[in-house]
Amino acid sequence: MLNSLLVVALVAIIAWLGAAIGLGSLFGVVLPYVAIVVFLGGVVWRMVWWAKSPVPFAIPTTGGQEKSLDFIKQAQWDCPDTTLGVVKRMFLEVFLFRSLFRNVNAEIKQDDPVNGGPRLIYYSSKWLWVFALLFHYCFFIVFFRHFRFFVDPVPGCVSFMEMIDGFLQIGAPRFYLTGGLLLVAVLFLIGRRLVNPRVRYISLTQDYFPLFLILGIVVSGIAMRYFLKTDITQVKAFVMGLVHFNPISADGIDPIFFVHVCLVSTLLIYFPFSKLTHMAGIFFSPTRNLPCNTRRVRHVNPWNPPKDFLTYPEYEDLYREAMAGANLPLDKPLEAETKQKSGE
């Protein structure tokens, strides 16, 4: 945990110092280009690596009643049997975190009055779901809002999103709700890893690292906007330069900007080589993205080995006498076999 925090702090400090001694173009120009290339290339490479292995078996987790008899109601969302149904299931999974929504917390009560002894009780536990949703959606909206810097003129949808996001109308510059919520959500996710003993036990350095990285990104972003009040027109001119592959001088931009950019670049570079690929991976998950119609439609395994089993004739050869004794029908009658033997 501390390691991750240190690494993130180090990245931020290097960026700050670098910008301060005039290496702004390194952190503001070269790094972002590299990061985007690595990110895009890396994610594609990861998806290709997955796709190179076949899906030998159709193993959807049936999350409810299968489609069978017409008077039995199918769980259409959780046990879909058509492609459209699977799309719906995936939609719920990707946009609403359907499986996480099921989460419950199991606790044992030693002396339950009903059971007259121990009893496991399940408490609804939607916090993880709430904060995970909050985190991902706020992250997305904040990301989306940044298009104000990448596109000129600012697209209507971006301005609209900004308007909604800033509906509280407090502060100048106007306070964006999602920025604040994102900070809260990240802190929850970090806090949960530290406080919940089970999650703490399973957490690895690479679980804290992206959280701290994102924390750094959010904090530097918020600092830039609300506290240091970085000159936005200058930043936009600089970013537009990047977008048009015509970088302009970074002189005069607050170093915090480079810290922000550097942290984002680190996240992008780290992304394809880490668990963050779950964003793309979920679409590949065979327990979710296949229809539950496995008895109706045959799924083909490209490496299906040839059949190798004890065939009926071999079986009969093994047990012919016993079978005859039990008056079981035989393909090759016993007499024939004995005759054959005696003839030899």
């Binding site: 990861r46 690596w49 997955w50 796709a51 292995s53 076949p54 899906v55 030998p56 193993i59 996480l100 993880l128 995970a132 999650v199 399973i202 957490s203 690895l204 679980d207 668990k275 690929t277 779950h278 991976g281 979920i282 590949f284 998950s285 065979p286 327990t287 490496w303």
Partner: peptide, 15 residues
């Protein structure tokens, strides 16, 4: 042989 295995090795976020 198994995409599931590659994927499950890669994308667990240890939530």
């Amino acid at each position: 042989k198994h995409r599931s295995l590659k994927l499950f090795m890669d994308i667990c976020v240890r939530c």
